[in-house]
Design a protein around this nucleic acid. Structure first.
Ligand SMILES: [Mn+2]
Ligand SMILES: [Mn+2]
Ligand SMILES: [Zn+2]
Ligand SMILES: [Zn+2]
Lengths: 147, 147
DNA sequence: TTGAAAATGAAAGTCGTTTTCATTTAGATT
DNA sequence: AATCTAAATGAAAACGACTTTCATTTTCAA
Protein backbone atom coordinates (compact mmCIF):
# COMPACT_ATOMS: atom_id res chain seq x y z
CA UNK A 1 0.00 0.00 0.00
CA UNK A 2 2.73 2.40 0.98
CA UNK A 3 4.49 1.59 -2.22
CA UNK A 4 1.30 1.95 -4.22
CA UNK A 5 0.76 5.43 -2.83
CA UNK A 6 4.35 6.47 -3.33
CA UNK A 7 4.14 5.71 -7.02
CA UNK A 8 1.23 8.13 -7.15
CA UNK A 9 3.15 10.82 -5.32
CA UNK A 10 1.59 10.50 -1.87
CA UNK A 11 3.36 9.92 1.40
CA UNK A 12 2.54 7.44 4.10
CA UNK A 13 1.83 8.59 7.61
CA UNK A 14 0.69 6.83 10.75
CA UNK A 15 -2.70 8.49 10.47
CA UNK A 16 -3.09 7.52 6.85
CA UNK A 17 -2.08 3.99 7.57
CA UNK A 18 -4.65 3.72 10.31
CA UNK A 19 -7.41 5.27 8.23
CA UNK A 20 -6.75 3.09 5.20
CA UNK A 21 -6.51 -0.03 7.28
CA UNK A 22 -9.73 0.75 9.11
CA UNK A 23 -11.57 1.55 5.94
CA UNK A 24 -10.65 -1.64 4.18
CA UNK A 25 -11.38 -3.97 7.04
CA UNK A 26 -14.74 -2.39 7.73
CA UNK A 27 -18.14 -3.11 6.31
CA UNK A 28 -18.99 -1.07 3.27
CA UNK A 29 -20.78 2.20 2.70
CA UNK A 30 -19.21 3.90 5.64
CA UNK A 31 -19.65 7.60 6.31
CA UNK A 32 -16.95 10.04 7.33
CA UNK A 33 -18.37 10.23 10.82
CA UNK A 34 -18.44 6.49 11.19
CA UNK A 35 -14.86 6.06 10.10
CA UNK A 36 -13.83 9.00 12.23
CA UNK A 37 -15.36 7.35 15.28
CA UNK A 38 -13.67 4.10 14.46
CA UNK A 39 -10.16 5.47 14.05
CA UNK A 40 -10.55 7.70 17.09
CA UNK A 41 -10.77 4.60 19.20
CA UNK A 42 -7.23 3.74 18.19
CA UNK A 43 -5.88 7.27 17.95
CA UNK A 44 -7.65 9.98 19.91
CA UNK A 45 -5.58 12.72 18.32
CA UNK A 46 -6.61 12.12 14.74
CA UNK A 47 -8.53 14.94 13.13
CA UNK A 48 -11.82 14.85 11.32
CA UNK A 49 -10.41 16.59 8.29
CA UNK A 50 -7.64 14.05 8.06
CA UNK A 51 -10.17 11.27 7.90
CA UNK A 52 -12.18 13.17 5.34
CA UNK A 53 -9.15 13.91 3.20
CA UNK A 54 -7.99 10.34 3.26
CA UNK A 55 -11.37 9.02 2.21
CA UNK A 56 -11.18 11.43 -0.68
CA UNK A 57 -7.72 10.13 -1.41
CA UNK A 58 -8.89 6.54 -1.41
CA UNK A 59 -11.40 7.58 -4.04
CA UNK A 60 -8.85 9.51 -6.02
CA UNK A 61 -6.55 6.55 -6.33
CA UNK A 62 -9.48 4.48 -7.47
CA UNK A 63 -10.04 2.23 -4.48
CA UNK A 64 -13.45 3.55 -3.50
CA UNK A 65 -16.31 5.65 -4.73
CA UNK A 66 -18.65 8.09 -3.18
CA UNK A 67 -22.23 6.95 -2.99
CA UNK A 68 -25.08 9.38 -2.64
CA UNK A 69 -28.42 7.96 -1.64
CA UNK A 70 -30.26 11.22 -1.44
CA UNK A 71 -30.28 11.51 2.33
CA UNK A 72 -27.54 14.12 2.21
CA UNK A 73 -24.85 11.89 3.63
CA UNK A 74 -21.97 10.69 1.51
CA UNK A 75 -20.98 7.08 1.90
CA UNK A 76 -17.79 5.49 0.70
CA UNK A 77 -18.01 2.24 -1.16
CA UNK A 78 -15.09 0.05 -2.05
CA UNK A 79 -14.89 -0.46 -5.78
CA UNK A 80 -15.64 -4.00 -6.77
CA UNK A 81 -14.98 -6.04 -9.85
CA UNK A 82 -18.62 -6.57 -10.69
CA UNK A 83 -20.92 -3.57 -10.84
CA UNK A 84 -23.69 -3.57 -8.30
CA UNK A 85 -26.81 -1.66 -7.47
CA UNK A 86 -28.21 -0.71 -4.09
CA UNK A 87 -31.35 -1.53 -2.20
CA UNK A 88 -31.75 1.30 0.28
CA UNK A 89 -34.26 1.10 3.08
CA UNK A 90 -35.77 4.53 3.56
CA UNK A 91 -36.68 3.66 7.11
CA UNK A 92 -33.68 1.99 8.74
CA UNK A 93 -31.09 3.06 6.13
CA UNK A 94 -29.97 -0.49 5.60
CA UNK A 95 -28.12 -0.91 2.35
CA UNK A 96 -28.00 -4.11 0.36
CA UNK A 97 -26.27 -4.78 -2.90
CA UNK A 98 -27.24 -6.72 -5.96
CA UNK A 99 -25.46 -7.48 -9.23
CA UNK A 100 -26.33 -5.37 -12.24
CA UNK A 101 -24.11 -6.58 -15.02
CA UNK A 102 -26.94 -7.15 -17.48
CA UNK A 103 -28.58 -3.86 -16.69
CA UNK A 104 -25.35 -1.99 -17.16
CA UNK A 105 -25.06 -3.60 -20.55
CA UNK A 106 -28.45 -2.23 -21.53
CA UNK A 107 -27.63 1.17 -20.11
CA UNK A 108 -24.34 1.35 -21.96
CA UNK A 109 -26.28 0.80 -25.13
CA UNK A 110 -28.76 3.52 -24.26
CA UNK A 111 -25.87 5.87 -23.66
CA UNK A 112 -24.30 4.93 -26.95
CA UNK A 113 -27.53 5.62 -28.77
CA UNK A 114 -27.35 9.17 -27.49
CA UNK A 115 -23.62 9.64 -28.12
CA UNK A 116 -23.12 9.87 -24.40
CA UNK A 117 -19.87 8.64 -22.85
CA UNK A 118 -20.78 6.92 -19.59
CA UNK A 119 -18.43 7.08 -16.64
CA UNK A 120 -20.66 5.65 -14.02
CA UNK A 121 -23.97 3.87 -13.62
CA UNK A 122 -26.18 4.35 -10.65
CA UNK A 123 -28.94 1.86 -10.02
CA UNK A 124 -30.88 2.17 -6.82
CA UNK A 125 -34.06 0.85 -5.40
CA UNK A 126 -35.45 2.80 -2.50
CA UNK A 127 -38.14 1.35 -0.35
CA UNK A 128 -38.64 -0.72 2.75
CA UNK A 129 -36.77 -3.77 3.85
CA UNK A 130 -38.76 -6.71 5.06
CA UNK A 131 -38.46 -5.74 8.69
CA UNK A 132 -39.42 -2.09 8.23
CA UNK A 133 -42.24 -3.04 5.92
CA UNK A 134 -43.87 -5.02 8.70
CA UNK A 135 -43.31 -2.34 11.29
CA UNK A 136 -44.80 0.27 8.99
CA UNK A 137 -47.86 -1.88 8.51
CA UNK A 138 -48.30 -1.95 12.27
CA UNK A 139 -47.80 1.79 12.61
CA UNK A 140 -50.53 2.59 10.13
CA UNK A 141 -52.98 0.51 12.08
CA UNK A 142 -52.64 3.12 14.80
CA UNK A 143 -52.48 6.79 13.92
CA UNK A 144 -50.17 8.45 11.42
CA UNK A 145 -51.44 11.75 10.25
CA UNK A 146 -49.68 15.05 10.61
CA UNK A 147 -49.26 17.84 8.08
CA UNK B 1 -55.55 23.67 -9.59
CA UNK B 2 -56.98 25.81 -6.86
CA UNK B 3 -59.77 23.32 -6.45
CA UNK B 4 -57.30 20.44 -6.43
CA UNK B 5 -55.33 22.02 -3.63
CA UNK B 6 -58.37 22.91 -1.63
CA UNK B 7 -59.48 19.32 -1.56
CA UNK B 8 -56.14 18.54 0.03
CA UNK B 9 -56.51 21.27 2.60
CA UNK B 10 -54.24 23.91 1.13
CA UNK B 11 -55.08 27.46 0.27
CA UNK B 12 -54.37 29.36 -2.89
CA UNK B 13 -52.39 32.56 -2.84
CA UNK B 14 -51.02 34.84 -5.54
CA UNK B 15 -47.48 33.67 -4.76
CA UNK B 16 -48.46 30.04 -4.92
CA UNK B 17 -50.28 30.55 -8.15
CA UNK B 18 -47.26 32.17 -9.71
CA UNK B 19 -44.87 29.51 -8.44
CA UNK B 20 -47.02 26.61 -9.58
CA UNK B 21 -47.62 28.18 -12.97
CA UNK B 22 -43.93 28.90 -13.47
CA UNK B 23 -42.91 25.43 -12.42
CA UNK B 24 -45.25 23.65 -14.77
CA UNK B 25 -44.52 25.72 -17.81
CA UNK B 26 -40.78 25.45 -17.33
CA UNK B 27 -38.33 22.87 -18.52
CA UNK B 28 -37.78 20.05 -16.09
CA UNK B 29 -35.31 19.40 -13.33
CA UNK B 30 -35.35 22.92 -12.04
CA UNK B 31 -33.60 23.90 -8.84
CA UNK B 32 -35.00 26.12 -6.12
CA UNK B 33 -32.63 28.90 -7.12
CA UNK B 34 -33.63 28.69 -10.73
CA UNK B 35 -37.32 28.83 -9.99
CA UNK B 36 -36.75 31.59 -7.47
CA UNK B 37 -34.98 33.65 -10.12
CA UNK B 38 -37.76 32.99 -12.56
CA UNK B 39 -40.65 34.01 -10.32
CA UNK B 40 -38.74 37.02 -9.04
CA UNK B 41 -38.90 38.45 -12.52
CA UNK B 42 -42.66 38.60 -12.20
CA UNK B 43 -42.85 39.37 -8.50
CA UNK B 44 -39.86 40.97 -6.85
CA UNK B 45 -41.31 40.59 -3.39
CA UNK B 46 -41.61 36.84 -3.36
CA UNK B 47 -39.43 35.09 -0.79
CA UNK B 48 -37.00 32.27 -1.28
CA UNK B 49 -38.60 30.19 1.42
CA UNK B 50 -41.97 30.55 -0.22
CA UNK B 51 -40.58 29.14 -3.43
CA UNK B 52 -38.90 26.35 -1.52
CA UNK B 53 -42.01 25.51 0.43
CA UNK B 54 -44.16 25.43 -2.64
CA UNK B 55 -41.80 23.11 -4.47
CA UNK B 56 -42.04 20.84 -1.48
CA UNK B 57 -45.79 21.15 -1.66
CA UNK B 58 -45.85 20.24 -5.32
CA UNK B 59 -44.00 17.09 -4.34
CA UNK B 60 -46.26 16.40 -1.42
CA UNK B 61 -49.37 16.45 -3.56
CA UNK B 62 -47.66 14.10 -5.97
CA UNK B 63 -47.04 16.35 -8.94
CA UNK B 64 -43.24 16.31 -8.77
CA UNK B 65 -40.36 14.47 -7.23
CA UNK B 66 -37.04 15.49 -5.88
CA UNK B 67 -34.08 14.30 -7.89
CA UNK B 68 -30.64 13.99 -6.42
CA UNK B 69 -27.79 13.60 -8.85
CA UNK B 70 -25.02 13.62 -6.30
CA UNK B 71 -23.86 17.18 -6.90
CA UNK B 72 -25.54 18.34 -3.74
CA UNK B 73 -28.30 20.25 -5.48
CA UNK B 74 -31.88 19.08 -5.38
CA UNK B 75 -33.81 19.29 -8.60
CA UNK B 76 -37.55 19.02 -9.03
CA UNK B 77 -38.87 16.74 -11.68
CA UNK B 78 -42.46 16.58 -12.80
CA UNK B 79 -43.84 13.11 -12.35
CA UNK B 80 -44.55 11.38 -15.60
CA UNK B 81 -46.64 8.44 -16.59
CA UNK B 82 -43.73 6.35 -17.79
CA UNK B 83 -40.73 5.86 -15.54
CA UNK B 84 -37.52 7.35 -16.87
CA UNK B 85 -33.85 7.37 -16.10
CA UNK B 86 -31.37 10.20 -16.37
CA UNK B 87 -28.27 10.83 -18.41
CA UNK B 88 -26.35 13.43 -16.44
CA UNK B 89 -23.37 15.21 -17.95
CA UNK B 90 -20.77 15.66 -15.25
CA UNK B 91 -19.28 18.56 -17.11
CA UNK B 92 -22.11 20.82 -18.25
CA UNK B 93 -24.80 19.34 -15.96
CA UNK B 94 -27.12 18.73 -18.87
CA UNK B 95 -29.80 16.23 -18.05
CA UNK B 96 -31.48 13.95 -20.53
CA UNK B 97 -34.12 11.37 -19.94
CA UNK B 98 -34.68 7.92 -21.28
CA UNK B 99 -37.41 5.33 -20.76
CA UNK B 100 -36.76 2.53 -18.30
CA UNK B 101 -39.91 0.49 -18.20
CA UNK B 102 -38.18 -2.81 -18.89
CA UNK B 103 -35.40 -2.12 -16.44
CA UNK B 104 -37.85 -1.24 -13.73
CA UNK B 105 -39.51 -4.56 -14.35
CA UNK B 106 -36.27 -6.38 -13.73
CA UNK B 107 -35.54 -4.30 -10.68
CA UNK B 108 -38.95 -4.94 -9.21
CA UNK B 109 -38.20 -8.61 -9.50
CA UNK B 110 -34.84 -8.20 -7.80
CA UNK B 111 -36.55 -6.37 -4.98
CA UNK B 112 -39.14 -9.05 -4.67
CA UNK B 113 -36.46 -11.72 -4.44
CA UNK B 114 -35.15 -9.94 -1.39
CA UNK B 115 -38.55 -9.27 0.18
CA UNK B 116 -37.95 -5.61 -0.34
CA UNK B 117 -40.88 -3.27 -0.99
CA UNK B 118 -39.76 -0.75 -3.60
CA UNK B 119 -41.05 2.78 -3.52
CA UNK B 120 -38.80 4.31 -6.07
CA UNK B 121 -36.26 3.34 -8.70
CA UNK B 122 -33.30 5.47 -9.56
CA UNK B 123 -31.46 4.79 -12.77
CA UNK B 124 -28.76 7.20 -13.75
CA UNK B 125 -25.91 7.30 -16.16
CA UNK B 126 -23.26 9.84 -15.36
CA UNK B 127 -20.70 10.76 -17.94
CA UNK B 128 -20.10 13.22 -20.72
CA UNK B 129 -22.49 14.42 -23.33
CA UNK B 130 -21.30 14.50 -26.89
CA UNK B 131 -20.28 18.14 -26.76
CA UNK B 132 -18.36 17.91 -23.50
CA UNK B 133 -16.73 14.69 -24.59
CA UNK B 134 -15.14 16.49 -27.53
CA UNK B 135 -14.10 19.45 -25.47
CA UNK B 136 -12.52 17.20 -22.89
CA UNK B 137 -10.56 15.47 -25.61
CA UNK B 138 -9.17 18.85 -26.65
CA UNK B 139 -8.35 19.86 -23.09
CA UNK B 140 -6.26 16.80 -22.48
CA UNK B 141 -4.17 17.58 -25.51
CA UNK B 142 -2.98 20.61 -23.60
CA UNK B 143 -2.19 20.41 -19.91
CA UNK B 144 -4.44 19.06 -17.19
CA UNK B 145 -2.59 18.00 -14.10
CA UNK B 146 -3.14 19.32 -10.64
CA UNK B 147 -3.34 17.49 -7.35
C1' DT C 1 -68.04 39.98 8.73
C1' DT C 2 -65.19 37.37 11.54
C1' DG C 3 -61.94 34.03 13.32
C1' DA C 4 -58.98 30.14 12.92
C1' DA C 5 -55.77 28.05 10.19
C1' DA C 6 -52.59 28.53 6.62
C1' DA C 7 -49.18 31.16 4.09
C1' DT C 8 -45.68 34.52 3.65
C1' DG C 9 -40.91 36.90 3.89
C1' DA C 10 -36.88 37.84 6.41
C1' DA C 11 -33.78 36.17 9.22
C1' DA C 12 -31.48 32.86 11.65
C1' DG C 13 -30.29 28.03 12.32
C1' DT C 14 -28.70 23.44 10.80
C1' DC C 15 -25.42 20.28 9.28
C1' DG C 16 -22.44 17.86 6.20
C1' DT C 17 -18.78 19.28 3.56
C1' DT C 18 -14.65 21.88 2.32
C1' DT C 19 -10.97 25.23 2.96
C1' DT C 20 -7.58 27.82 5.49
C1' DC C 21 -3.52 28.22 7.99
C1' DA C 22 0.11 27.45 11.18
C1' DT C 23 2.76 23.58 12.29
C1' DT C 24 4.65 19.04 11.81
C1' DT C 25 6.34 15.20 9.19
C1' DA C 26 7.92 12.11 5.39
C1' DG C 27 11.27 10.84 2.74
C1' DA C 28 14.40 12.16 -1.04
C1' DT C 29 18.77 14.34 -1.45
C1' DT C 30 23.03 15.74 0.11
C1' DA D 1 23.31 11.93 9.85
C1' DA D 2 21.79 16.46 8.56
C1' DT D 3 19.10 19.13 5.41
C1' DC D 4 15.37 20.52 2.65
C1' DT D 5 10.90 20.72 0.27
C1' DA D 6 6.55 19.14 -0.62
C1' DA D 7 2.99 16.79 1.56
C1' DA D 8 0.21 15.94 5.56
C1' DT D 9 -1.99 17.12 9.76
C1' DG D 10 -5.44 19.19 13.26
C1' DA D 11 -8.14 22.96 14.73
C1' DA D 12 -10.89 26.21 13.40
C1' DA D 13 -13.46 28.77 10.35
C1' DA D 14 -15.98 29.09 6.05
C1' DC D 15 -19.20 27.39 2.88
C1' DG D 16 -23.70 26.50 0.99
C1' DA D 17 -27.90 24.18 0.32
C1' DC D 18 -31.52 23.26 2.96
C1' DT D 19 -34.80 23.99 6.82
C1' DT D 20 -36.99 26.28 10.64
C1' DT D 21 -38.57 30.17 13.30
C1' DC D 22 -41.38 33.97 14.11
C1' DA D 23 -44.01 38.05 13.54
C1' DT D 24 -47.26 39.44 10.26
C1' DT D 25 -50.54 38.94 6.60
C1' DT D 26 -53.93 36.47 4.01
C1' DT D 27 -57.28 33.00 2.80
C1' DC D 28 -61.68 31.16 3.07
C1' DA D 29 -65.25 28.53 5.67
C1' DA D 30 -68.66 29.54 8.89
MN1 LIG E 1 -22.20 -0.61 -2.68
MN1 LIG F 1 -36.43 13.50 -15.04
ZN1 LIG G 1 -35.38 -1.12 6.94
ZN1 LIG H 1 -22.07 18.15 -21.22
Amino acid sequence: MKEFLRTKGFKMTPQRELIFRSFFELEEHITVDELYDKVRILDRSIGYSTVWRNLKLICKVGLAEEVNLGDGITRYDRVTKVPHGHLFCISCKKLEEFPVEQLVGLLAQTAGDKSFTPENFKIEIQGFCEKCQKENANDSKNGEDDV
